[in-house]
Simulated assay, not measured.
Amino acid sequence: MTTPTEATHSIRDLTVQRVRHPLKMRMLRVVRTRLVSPQLLRVTLHGADLADFVSASFDDHVKVFFPQGGADRPDLPEVGPNGPVFAEGQPRPPARDYTPRRYDPVARELDIEFVLHGDGPASTWAARAKPGQYLGIGGPRGSFVVPTAFDWHLLVGDETALPAIGRRLEELGTGTRALVVVEVPDAAAEIPLPSAANVEVHWLHRGDAPEGSLLEPALRKIALPHGEGYVWAAGESAAIKLVRQHLVTERGIAKTRIRASSYWKRGAAAVHETLED
């Protein structure tokens, strides 16, 4: 005999979907900033250009364009039939990929969180950000939509993954279990992660250890729940590759049930890519 719970589970749609969005460039203005932790700054952007903004997944990213050379605003590319088109003979504005942390369509506000690590155009700009300044935003060009109906969700990453992890936990409802493994510099970098789900958080303090080096060893000590699960992992490229390899080869998790991304790569700049094979 099939119980009501089993029947509900049998008809769940656990299909991961890719959704495309029209590419649009937006010029937005800073309205406020707030330190979420000593290392994480939330910047709230506002503008009429947000009227048709869409972000369908916690995994989304937008391209953020920064002013350069003392300019008030960044020079945004035009959108051509094959993507962004930059002005010939002009230097391209510095740009990095970031998670849309929160979008309010009524207030036309978009929150983006920046890790303050002391170098690079994004961190340098964020450390000095003030209301009235401008940023350019491109995208998202598409969304990788992971259903919330899985029995459990494993979310893994370093501090650069916290905006996406925080957004995902807010999306999960009651009756869902989430395991979170996050590596941060120290206890001061821990932040609240509210959720209606049953959440188990493992904070890892790396101290002087290399970024990402604690993630895979910590996962080896964690028992995964029964049922249908999905894994999302993001952070330093080499560290997340090790995480994915461990989950696939030693835990037997299907590659179709893992979304692993390199948010940055040690020794390289502006790296953001999905890790697949």
Rank of each mutant, 00 (worst) to 15 (best):
64 V>S: 04
121 P>L: 05
79 V>S: 08
129 A>H: 00
65 F>Q: 02
68 Q>V: 14
34 R>D: 11
123 S>W: 07
109 E>Q: 13
87 A>D: 10
60 D>M: 11
61 H>E: 04
59 D>E: 14
133 Q>K: 08
83 G>Y: 06
64 V>H: 05
101 R>A: 03
87 A>V: 11
86 F>L: 06
94 P>R: 10
67 P>L: 10
117 H>A: 04
105 P>N: 08
91 P>E: 09
100 P>C: 08
79 V>C: 08
97 D>M: 15
112 I>S: 05
47 G>T: 12
89 G>V: 12
108 R>C: 01
102 R>D: 00
67 P>S: 11
46 H>T: 09
43 V>Q: 08
63 K>I: 10
88 E>I: 11
103 Y>T: 07
49 D>C: 03
46 H>V: 00
65 F>V: 05
87 A>R: 15
64 V>F: 00
125 W>V: 09
52 D>E: 15
45 L>V: 01
65 F>M: 14
40 L>Y: 10
121 P>I: 11
112 I>Q: 02
46 H>S: 13
94 P>L: 11
94 P>Q: 10
65 F>L: 15
56 A>N: 12
72 D>L: 15
96 R>E: 02
69 G>Y: 05
119 D>T: 14
110 L>T: 03
79 V>W: 02
121 P>F: 01
77 P>G: 01
81 P>I: 14
36 V>T: 10
54 V>K: 13
60 D>R: 10
103 Y>L: 01
66 F>G: 03
123 S>G: 12
84 P>C: 06
105 P>E: 11
91 P>Q: 08
115 V>F: 03
45 L>C: 06
118 G>D: 06
100 P>Y: 07
123 S>V: 01
53 F>P: 12
115 V>A: 04
42 R>D: 03
92 R>E: 09
105 P>A: 09
